[in-house]
Design a protein around this nucleic acid. Structure first.
Length: 437
RNA sequence: CGGAGUGUGGCUCAGUCUGGUAGAGCACCGCGUUCGGGACGCGGGGGUCGCAGGUUCGAAUCCUGCCACUCCGACCA
């Protein structure tokens, strides 16, 4: 993409009361624009990152055996009356009437809809286990939206729902999501720690939140320090095999959110391993058994021929929130430092003197070569001052930048800059381009 | 939902207390000088001051109501 033809409304100033660094940087980098409290338009650069994060989530869900579908944003109130949640959910649910006066709602989650889909088609244990997920916009009318996309009212969520014949099988499904989440967050460069969590209005008795530690996090959390650096099992995991040992390894050490905190148990952790910190919740998984299948009559026949409510779990990832979490975890005074896997562009090309024949020619050559090598390239061909170009590339966090200026290109050289380290080196343009593929 | 604030060109803000025909910086347009880490000079365009009502000769400014947004707290798959 040529920057001269792109839409990248970077800002030099943001409102004084925007305190969270990720929110500031997303506004300054021209990624989002607020349209109403907790409601944002995703500008081109922000959308690119959102899509990359979404795709990583999708790939890891698929790898774990989940099946993607897409459920509507608008749901029928009648379904929620069946589960008993229509009245219980409160003012956080955005309620709407259609022209016929029928009650609709903008979905804050989709247990009811997915259960309705499931019960219409699945009647036998032979079709289990099943895990259906979608990545869809949700709306929760938060009393106090804040921190940009970290707590918006409208947000993009991946929500998965598992269906199993019994609790033992359901726990295996739960474990698959547990491991898939570790892998998902690790791919984005995040250290997410699974912690015992409260189940809240969704209900159930087994639940973990995945927490990214950050000073600006909204949750107070307590855990054993070793969990932070434990890492993820990686893509080689056999999701058809027994995942319990991997899960046990990560649940044996103490880790809990404030609601589930047990001071005595925490005190048993060696003092130098006790970590009390703030965290951002990026994922939340639940096993809740028959909570929805029973009232909604989602029954399946077992091997003995008798029908019983299916056992369910649900598994959420805050896709749009992840942008904020990643920026909180990875930035410096100059701007965002995107991990390679989620960077909006792989490579930046800075033409220090647009209009100079040698610079233009070298940049065009680099631009063509990089695209031919399959790289996503952002080429700053604007008639702008060098400082503005450097500042923009750093602000939006392009991982590697090729800098073409009249002095060095006269000798066939360019500067290569690494955003994360600030390291700069000089090399011949041809060598740099040869190294792209 | 309780408390506290803020709404003035595209952005960040001053002006409001003490009423008198709307400002700055940035951004934008033109010309010129510059140009290897967010340049400078000169000129220019752009705002019914959140909305409605009231007071007044006169309202961005005072009064009333409403709306929106923000911050602290409570709340929060």
């Amino acid at each position: 993409m040529r920057l001269s033809r792109y839409f990248l409304p970077v800002l030099k100033e943001v409102p004084a009361d925007v305190q969270i660094v990720s929110h500031q940087l997303m506004l300054r980098a021209g990624m989002i624009r607020q349209e109403a409290a907790g409601i944002y338009a995703w500008l081109p650069l922000g959308l690119r990152v959102l899509k990359k994060i979404e795709q990583i989530v999708r790939e890891e869900m698929d790898r774990a055996g989940a099946v993607e579908l897409l459920m509507p944003t608008l749901q029928l109130a009648d379904l929620w009356r069946e589960s008993g949640r229509y009245e219980a959910y409160g003012d956080e649910m955005l309620r709407i009437k259609d022209r016929h006066g029928r009650d609709l709602l903008y979905g804050p989650t989709a247990e009811e809809v997915v259960t309705d889909i499931f019960r219409a088609s699945v009647k036998s244990y032979k079709d289990l286990p099943l895990n259906l997920y979608n990545i869809q916009w949700k709306f929760r009318d938060e009393r106090r939206p804040r921190f940009g996309v970290m707590r918006g009212r409208e947000f993009l969520m991946k929500d998965a729902y598992s269906f199993d014949l019994n609790e033992a099988d359901a726990r295996r499904s739960y474990n698959r999501m547990f491991i898939a989440y570790l892998n998902t967050f690790a791919r984005m460069g995040l250290k997410a720690v699974p912690m015992k969590a409260d189940t809240g209005p969704i209900g159930g008795d087994l639940s973990h939140e995945f927490i990214v530690l950050a000073e600006t996090g909204e949750s107070q959390v307590f855990c054993h320090k070793d969990l932070v650096e434990m890492g993820a099992p990686g893509p080689g995991v056999d999701f058809d095999g027994d995942l319990q040992p991997l899960v046990d390894q990560r649940t044996a050490l103490y880790a809990a959110t404030e609601e589930m905190h047990d001071e005595a148990a925490f005190g048993a952790v060696p003092a130098d391993k006790q970590l009390s910190a703030r965290g951002i919740e990026v994922g939340h998984i639940f096993y809740f058994g028959e909570k929805y299948s029973k009232p909604m009559k989602a029954n399946v026949a077992g091997p003995d021929g008798t029908s019983a409510p299916v056992h369910m779990g649900s598994y959420g990832v805050g896709v749009s929130r992840l942008l904020g979490a990643i920026i909180e975890a990875s930035h410096d005074d100059n701007g965002i430092i995107w991990p390679d896997a989620v960077a909006p562009y792989d490579l930046g090309i800075i033409n220090l003197k647009s209009g100079d024949a040698a610079c233009d020619a070298a940049c065009e050559k680099a631009y063509a070569a990089a695209r031919a090598a399959g790289k996503a390239v952002l080429y700053d061909d604007r008639d702008e001052r060098a400082g503005a170009k450097f500042a923009t590339m750093d602000l939006i966090g392009i991982p590697r930048q090729i800098v073409v200026g009249p002095k060095s290109i006269a000798e066939g050289n360019v500067e290569v800059k690494v955003r994360a380290t600030g390291e700069r080196s000089v090399a011949s343009l041809d060598d740099v381009l040869a190294g792209l593929s």
